[in-house]
Design a protein around this nucleic acid. Structure first.
Lengths: 337, 337
DNA sequence: GTGAAAGCGCTAACAG
DNA sequence: CTGTTAGCGCTTTCAC
């Protein structure tokens, strides 16, 4: 493992010059630069990031904190962030806060703060003011994905608008009895996502004068199984069978599609079904949905951090960046009979 | 951001003593230790991992290299590894090699080697001898998950045995015409996993004197859609309809179940279907399968690394640690009519 | 354009 | 059990 001094020796220059030549900071004559680069290549020299970080105070490493890894949305965000970071020469240190509060405190106190990271991306994580402040005090930029964080730059999708769009698609097809499968209280963790989507649904109905019917709501846990159970409940109601279902996530919507089949209802002839996400399975199931783009969200988060880490790049004005979404119509929605 | 010297001052001791008291290395009187801890807590002191790493040569950080993040198996392995590492006070730096070879070289040269990590976990990655050697030369322990790596400790499942078990389950129910949905050549990247599973299937058949019928094989890409297509192919063959299908992954098996339904075949009355994985969706679909435990694999990989990183712990003997798997019988398999 | 030298913040002998 | 003293390997003024 050659050090900078061996490179310096081989190139016949000082270590300072090697550092300048290799990092691009400061001026070095082209000839010298080339000799240094050749020497470095010959020795297979790579800078020690620790020594470098210690000297500069920058780690070229960002921490990504996520409550899950194993779910489509979160995995995609991390994947997108990883790619973007790699492109900028940064590493990504992963903190999975799936565990309870102990794990959480432990991560904050012993890991993030160790000066290991230059910045933090928090995915769907409601940080306490304390946590935010300790990061800000440390001068570490943070960007949140998925909801408003006090005083922090965030990327978030307008859940009310997304749900409204989905519901309006169903309305525009002529559906009047539109059921909703949404989260129950227990899922309020993620920035009221379930509530916002429910509000969007209700807003759309009310806008066209359809009263919200509590019997057309069923709670589920954002899994396929949950959506399946909820849909059976809805479809089994003998006096109030909906002609369409809007589920707050694609996984629940797919569960609902399977429930429909199991009950002898065909989609979309007997029942239209609509989700949110454009999950990786949705195309296969022919599910109509409102797409969001998690990988791109991860990438965007990185761009925002880079802007803050390297001033001189354009400065984003507003604290919150709205995320794009699109209606994707497939074969699970149609006019009612 | 207080430094070690401020803690030392407040506690009325030397920085060396602070270091010892806080790290647990070396002896410190209980009284002193407490004073130091109190001082550290009061100041909110956290060690600078860079300075510490530079001085010790250890980073308390391990690199995890994976080709995907977004798939059940990989996400679970990483999740398991992350938990275990956190428990040992280590961080996890993620390198997602989904991109092409450029990304790969870049990761190896510019990231892993920067002395950023103490060890590497390579998931389903066939490292070149060069890559392995550069890691070994650096004295970095590596553990591979998913296949034999030359000269590297690995964790791997016996794919032949797993597939054989799955097939034998079907045989024991009385099936004679058992089709197989497996990977095509393009998937040979992952340590010949598809081939091994196919071999296990063929071995099981031959053991009971059933000839392997190439017409009962269909290739797919390990996705649900792929399994669906392959199964339709199999079920549509008018003169050779299998009574059972063994798919090399649960996702493909679920695709096959959906194909069966769409063709009016009921599972398991008309056709039995079997997978491998115990994917998170398998219980919901009632899929019989052979379970493997990716999260535990991640945890085990960490344990092996810890053994190598902290000699004095028990030393594993063999290079390869076999992974456990279990038959899980649900409602997708039954005796043939 | 390049070199000398002073740290970055901590740990690990070595004494005592 | 604790303090002193060298570094760990790089970056960065400050001179030249």
């Amino acid at each position: 493992m050659p050090g900078i001094n061996e490179v310096a020796e081989l190139a016949g220059v000082s270590t300072a010059t090697v550092s300048r030549a290799l990092s691009g900071n400061g001026h070095v004559s082209p000839a010298t630069r080339e000799r240094v680069q050749a020497a470095a290549a010959e020795l297979g020299y790579v800078v020690s990031s620790n020594a470098s970080s210690l000297a500069t105070g920058r780690t070229k490493n960002v921490g990504v904190v996520t409550p899950f890894l194993n779910r489509w949305f979160y995995g995609s965000v991390v994947e997108g962030a990883e790619q973007a970071l790699l492109g900028h020469g940064y590493d990504l240190t992963l903190y999975n806060l799936s565990g309870g509060n102990n794990e959480r405190r432990s991560v904050f106190e012993h890991f993030l703060l160790r000066k290991r990271v230059d910045a933090v991306i928090a995915i769907s994580l409601e940080l306490t003011p304390n946590e935010v402040n300790s990061l800000i005090d440390l001068g570490k930029p943070i960007v949140g994905i998925g909801g408003p964080l006090p005083g922090v730059r965030t990327l978030s999708i307008d859940d009310v608008a997304v749900a409204r769009l989905a519901t309006e698609h169903l309305l525009s097809l002529g559906h009047l009895a539109i059921a909703h499968i949404g989260g129950n209280k227990a899922f309020e963790v993620d920035f009221h996502l379930p509530t916002n989507r429910r509000v969007g649904y209700e807003t759309a109905l009310e806008a066209v004068g359809i009263p919200v019917d509590p019997e057309l709501f069923a709670a589920a846990d954002f899994t396929m199984q949950g959506g399946y159970n909820a849909a059976k409940q809805l479809f089994g109601n003998p006096r109030k069978r909906p002609t369409a279902v809007f589920a707050a996530s694609d996984e629940m919507a797919i569960g609902a599609m399977l429930a429909a089949r199991d009950m002898g209802l065909s989609v979309p002839q007997d029942i239209s079904i609509m989700g949110i996400d454009d999950h990786e399975l949705s195309e296969f199931f022919g599910l109509s949905t409102v797409a969001q783009y998690p990988a791109e969200q991860g990438r965007k988060a990185v761009e925002i951090l880079m802007d803050q880490l390297h001033p001189g790049r354009r400065e984003k004005g507003s604290l919150n960046t709205p995320l794009s979404f699109d209606l994707v119509v497939r074969s699970s929605t149609a006019r009612p009979h």
